[in-house]
Amino acid sequence: MAALDGKIAIITGAGSGIGRASAIRFAAEGAKVILGDMAESVQETAKMIGDGAAAMQMDAGKEEDVAAIVKLALDTHGRIDIAFANAGISGGMEGIFDNSVENFTEVLRVNLIGPWLMVKHAGKVMADAGNGGSIILTASVAGIRSGAGGPPYSASKAGVINLAMVSAQQMSDTGVRVNAICPGLTETGMTKPTFDYAKAKDVMHKVGRLNPLRRGAQPEELANVALFLASDQASYINGQAIAVDGGLSSSHPVTRQLTGQTAV
């Protein structure tokens, strides 16, 4: 039996990157997927999957849109087993003094209010059904400590980590699990300029060099972790924030002592 046989999954941010990779992976493991994204490319993702995939263009930070994709899942399949609130925006790298209230507010709206809306609407459906379920929120290593994103992005992702913990506690006795994934540098639409620049300058060997694996991640590597959290194999994992970052967050910045070598 496939890991998600017969499961119904909502995935936002499914037009590219981690969301698209997760949609394809979930479907390959037997799930029926309902996909959301602001971009038209979400329809392409559904076509790539084929039979059983439904897609809609939506704003993950608007309550009416989140309610609409939840309704689409219920109208199409009658239930929801998995909700992956993956949609997010970077908001730029302006410093703490240079950000505008408008930018800060927009990043929080999409990156933090969006996942809360998925918990509110999809989580309520799961809790009321009494069959358990899995909610997965995309946070970031930027939410664990500074240095991996701009101020609004980092603050929003720290909020997502706490949201997973609070939601898991507040849904005690429902059987619904809530966890967050904290990606490190991953090749997605959001990071495309970084990767394109590195490829153009032939310096890809420098991408991700700060983590012990010395490389960036591919979306499929994050999709594998999302699949695990969505499946019954993660049945006792709840309220956690799992870093998938090549080991970046395992250390504070230090000089490294390499075996048999001087510190670098």
Rank of each mutant, 00 (worst) to 15 (best):
L4H: 06
T259N: 12
N238K: 01
T191G: 04
A223N: 02
E63G: 05
H252I: 13
I82R: 13
A223K: 01
V33A: 05
D59M: 06
P193G: 08
S100W: 09
L74N: 10
A198L: 07
L248Y: 13
R214K: 03
T191Q: 03
A164K: 08
S172L: 15
L258R: 06
A142P: 07
P115L: 09
V176E: 15
G132M: 15
M56E: 11
G13D: 10
G19D: 08
S167Q: 14
V141T: 04
I80R: 10
S154C: 11
K206S: 11
K71F: 04
A223V: 09
C182G: 08
F228V: 00
G149M: 02
M118K: 01
A127T: 13
L222E: 05
A230G: 13
I161H: 04
T255C: 03
L117T: 03
G15Q: 09
I136M: 05
Q233W: 02
A243S: 12
Q233P: 00
I82N: 10
R214A: 03
K7P: 10
S250N: 09
L112H: 01
N99S: 00
A87E: 10
I237S: 03
V254E: 08
W116M: 13
A164F: 09
E220V: 02
G247S: 07
D75H: 05
V42H: 10
G189T: 15
R109C: 00
L248E: 04
M58K: 02
V203K: 07
V42Y: 12
